[in-house]
Structure formats: structure tokens, C-alpha cells
Design a protein around this nucleic acid. Sequence first.
DNA 1: TTCGTTAACGATAATCGTTATCGTTAGCAT
DNA 2: ATGCTAACGATAACGATTATCGTTAACGAA
Lengths: 129, 129
Amino acid sequence: MQAQRHSKQRDAILENLCSRYDHPTAEDLYFSLKPQIPALSLATVYRNLAQLESDGKIIRIESGTTKRYDGNINLHYHLTCLDCGGVFDIFLNDDCGLCQKAAESFDGKIVSHSVLFTGYCPSCSKQAG
Amino acid sequence: MQAQRHSKQRDAILENLCSRYDHPTAEDLYFSLKPQIPALSLATVYRNLAQLESDGKIIRIESGTTKRYDGNINLHYHLTCLDCGGVFDIFLNDDCGLCQKAAESFDGKIVSHSVLFTGYCPSCSKQAG
DNA sequence: TTCGTTAACGATAATCGTTATCGTTAGCAT
DNA sequence: ATGCTAACGATAACGATTATCGTTAACGAA
């Protein structure tokens, strides 16, 4: 296995992702970084997101058709708004014993977990209900 | 809005899905039903899965690239095996207070939730670890 | 500092799951 | 039986992601 080389593009992608809280798609990041790195290719964004994810530096959110990414790797959950389609963070103090209970009732090995809520975000729930 | 009509295809899809526990993809169901309904079209499978899902009769599992479906609509969670790629059921008695805690700490409205564990299924965890 | 190796890049073609289109079929109310 | 149109089957289109390939640049060794 070869050493991973440093790259401006990967740095920029990670930095951009960690500085925002809207859980962008690969394309969102691409357009966000394009002014800063005009020669950037969308393929490079996908490549680096995959790499950063397998390195455990970012999180992939499986929400609907398009994958979204999160630079916050601390334990937290997400909610997809049925109205605006946005993805929002939900911070709990712990996992509510979910992993322990799951480990007790499942005859396999649990490595990680993710929770995806659906509902209405603060803004949309105030407007309509 | 027009009334939903009955169709053999939809019946067969729902029945097939409810009789199995492997969380098949649309294509899995298509090939499974093809001998029984030779004229079946893959588009029909997709159409009916979407309809059954919006009717609340089945559940869609967002696991990786391909959507999978589950005929069991009772509360339970899933685990994706990192080894074999299969999706397995995890039954807990309740949601461990997840929804309540989330509602308390989130200024929006929560409608539903899903939990996806990753790890190793019983069979794969016995073989390797 | 220069050189050689090759990881990573940019551009773009290919892939693949899913959705849309459209002419035909069949469920069901009249 | 007849008419209306939801649902069908076949297939084209779509969109997100991945693979390919020639070029560029990171970085260890000379």
C-alpha cells in the first residue's frame, strides 16, 4: 500500500465541509470551491469525499437519492425536512443505549450506527405544521 | 384524486415482499416474480414499490447505493454487514426513548425515524471477526 | 536541486439505479 | 356491454456516481 499524498484539493474540500453545517452534496461542494480552485473537477470532489470518508474524517449521510456529507464526526443524528428537503443536525447527549440494546438482541457485531429522522425543520414547522 | 385500482402485479409484489426477510431490491423482486408473471416489467415493480411505500404498507431502506424494501412495517432497525453486504433485522422492544429525546432537543417536528447499524452479521462475525 | 515514480488530478465517457414517456391493457363504475 | 382511465409493458431519458486515461505534481532518493 502506498502512502497517501498531500493535495490542495483534498485540504480545501475538508476545510470547506468542516466550515459549514448544511450537509452539502458533492456538487454543492464543487460549486462552492470552484471560484477558489477554478481548475477543480467534480470527479476530484467525489474521489476525495470517498477517501475522507474511509479515513473517518467525514460522515456520509444517506438521505434520499443524493448523498450528503458532514464534517462533524462527533456523535449526532440528522433530520430530513419533508417540506424544504434540508438536512438538520440533532444532538443528543448519548445514543440512548441504542448500541448496547442492539448488541444484546443481535447475534452479530455492531460497529457503528446512524439515525435519520424525518419531519419538519424549525423554520418549516413554524410556517405550516 | 382517483381511486386506486386493484392489480395482480401489486398484490404479487406485496405478497412476495412480505414472505421474505432478505430486504430485496426492486430488481430482486422483479426476478423473483418473473417466473410467476412472465410479462412483468421492471418499471411496474418500481412503480408499485413507490406506491406501497407511500401507502405505508412497506418500508424503504436507504442502504448504500441501491434501495431495499421491507414488508415488515413494525418498528425495527437494520444492520448492513460490512462483509457480505446483506441487510439484517434488529428488533428492540422500543425506540429507547430516541424520538422523545430528539423531540426535546430539536426545535422542529419529528414524524418518523430509522436506524441503520453497520457491522457484521451473525454468519460473517463467526467466520472472521 | 534535479530526477523518477506514481498518487492525484482534470476531462469526460461509461455505468447503473431509478424515473418519465407513451401506446396498450384491464379494473371497475355506469 | 361500454366508457373512462389507472395501471401496465417496453423502453428512452435522467441524474448521481464511478471508471478511464492522459497529464500534473507530491515527495523520496540520487
